[in-house]
C-alpha cells in the first residue's frame, strides 16, 4: 500500500510539527508513505471564493501528482472534502479521478476506517473538547450530526479514546461552526471573529483544557482569538495528540 501524503499549503508553511506528526503516525504504523515535493495547494481557497478557473488548474495538478498512490492521506478535513465533494465539477471523467475521489482520506478517518489500530500507546491526561470542523463533520461524516436523526458516533472520539487518561468534555453546541470558513475569515471578518469567540467560550465554560480537531485552519483561527484575548485554553491538532506515544 503506497500512501501519498498531502500536507495543506498553509500547514506546510506554518505547522511543520503537526504535519510531521501526521507523517510519524503513518510511518509508525509501518505504512509506506511518500511526500511528493511538487504538491502545493488543493485549490480550496479559490473554489470557496468562486474562482472556478483557478481552482480547476490546481485540482488538475493535484490529480496528476496524487493519482498514482493507493491512498492519499491529508491532515485536513476540508482539503479532503474539496477533493471528494468539489473536484468532480473540474475533473469528472478524467483519468484517475474516480480513484482519487474515493481514496483520498483525512488522517483520522483513514486510521479509523482503513488501518484500525488497536492501541496508540498514548497518555493524554487532559480535559479535551472536540471541535467538529464543518467539512470533516458534515461532508466527510466523521461524526453524527446534531441536525440529523441518527445514532451518535464520532470517529475522532473513537480514536482519541485509546489515549490513556483523556477526558472528553461535553459542549452546549456540539457541532457549531467556528467561523473560520476559508476566505470567509477575512471577507466577513467581524462575523468570523464573533463566531470564533463564541466557539472558544463554549469550550472554556465547559472546562476544556485542550481544543482538538482535524482541521488546523479552524484551530489556527480559534488559537488566534485565544492568543489575542489571552485565554487559558489551547488548541492542538488531533495528530499531535495521537503521535504523543511515538518515540
Amino acid at each position: 500500500m503506497r500512501i501519498g501524503l498531502f500536507i495543506p499549503c498553509f500547514m506546510n508553511e506554518l505547522y511543520p510539527e503537526a504535519s510531521m506528526d501526521t507523517l510519524r503516525i503513518l510511518e509508525h504504523l509501518g505504512l509506506d508513505v511518500e511526500y511528493p515535493f511538487e504538491q502545493t495547494c488543493c485549490g480550496q481557497p479559490m473554489a470557496n471564493t468562486g474562482c472556478a478557473k483557478e481552482a480547476s488548474v490546481l485540482a488538475y495538478r493535484f490529480l496528476e501528482i496524487f493519482k498514482k498512490y493507493d491512498y492519499i492521506v491529508a491532515p485536513s478535513g476540508s482539503c479532503v472534502s474539496m477533493v471528494r465533494q468539489n473536484y468532480a465539477q473540474f475533473l469528472e471523467g478524467k483519468d484517475g479521478f474516480e480513484h482519487l475521489r474515493t481514496h483520498t482520506y483525512e488522517l483520522v478517518e483513514f486510521l479509523h476506517d482503513i488501518i484500525k489500530p488497536d492501541n496508540l500507546h498514548v497518555k493524554f491526561p487532559f480535559k479535551v473538547g472536540i471541535h467538529n470542523s464543518c467539512h470533516a463533520h458534515r461532508h466527510l461524516r466523521l461524526a453524527s450530526m446534531s441536525e440529523r436523526n441518527e445514532a451518535p458516533f464520532s470517529k475522532i472520539k473513537a480514536l482519541l479514546e485509546k489515549a490513556e487518561g483523556i477526558e472528553f468534555v461535553e459542549l452546549t453546541r456540539v457541532d457549531e461552526c467556528c467561523g473560520f470558513g476559508g476566505t470567509f475569515c477575512v471577507s466577513e471578518e467581524a462575523m468570523s471573529v464573533a463566531m470564533g469567540k463564541d466557539r472558544v467560550q463554549d469550550h472554556l465554560k465547559a472546562g476544556v483544557q485542550i481544543i482538538t480537531g482535524v482541521d488546523m485552519s479552524c484551530l489556527m483561527h480559534m488559537q488566534g482569538i485565544i492568543d489575542r484575548d489571552k485565554l487559558p485554553i489551547k488548541t492542538m491538532y488531533v495528530g499531535q495528540i495521537l503521535a504523543g506515544g511515538i518515540v
Partner: peptide, 8 residues
C-alpha cells in the same frame, strides 16, 4: 459569501 459553508 455571507456563509461559512458549514452545511448545517
Amino acid at each position: 459569501f455571507a456563509c461559512s459553508l458549514c452545511g448545517s
